[in-house]
Amino acid sequence: MRRSPILTLVYGLVFAVGLLTASSVAVSQRVPSAARAVPSTSPPPSPSPSPSPPPLAKVNAVWAGEVDGGGASLAISVKDGVAVAYLCDGKKTEIWLRGTAANGQLSLVSKKGEILTGTFGGGKASGKITGSGKSFSFTIATAEPPSGLYRSTENVRNAQVVCGWIRLANGRTVGICDNAGTPAAAPPLDTSRVNPINPGSPDLT
């Protein structure tokens, strides 16, 4: 009886190690398909001198395009599985969403509760955004720099101005700046001054 708490720990440890091993096996079997799902923005795998299986790349990707019907642009940027999406019509409709991209699935939410769900792989991402007055469905392709998602945050006269831009593959760019709650069309995107978004950045609203 006195040993039973320790046995509980030991059984738990054995179970955990077993699950980790099974997960490692599952991942090593999934590597080819998972590698296909990661677009060309990730560096090509370098030949590894060690005999261990190559580590599976974390999801790093950018997709950009127009939503179905062409009413707005959408870009999704993913770094190490952390995803940021931005929907923008260049006039007054914009939605920032955050979440994850893993296992071929996108799941992001906005501050107001809009939800983006979808799938990715094979150089494109598709899904839908619901929860606001309108809903949007989309199928967008991998974006190569300089196309993609840009964001800047500045303090102007004690008010925070957050601007977002989506640059599409054809060069068309839409953007909106939010000045303390009031959205307006953004100035032209100056890529020498504004950087592509970093989804891991903690200052994202």
Partner: peptide
């Protein structure tokens, strides 16, 4: 550890989450 996005999952659900 580099997050893999996948691991062994439990049967009977639509996904890991």
């Amino acid at each position: 550890h580099s997050p893999t996005g996948i691991a062994v999952s439990v049967a009977g659900f639509s996904g890991p989450q």
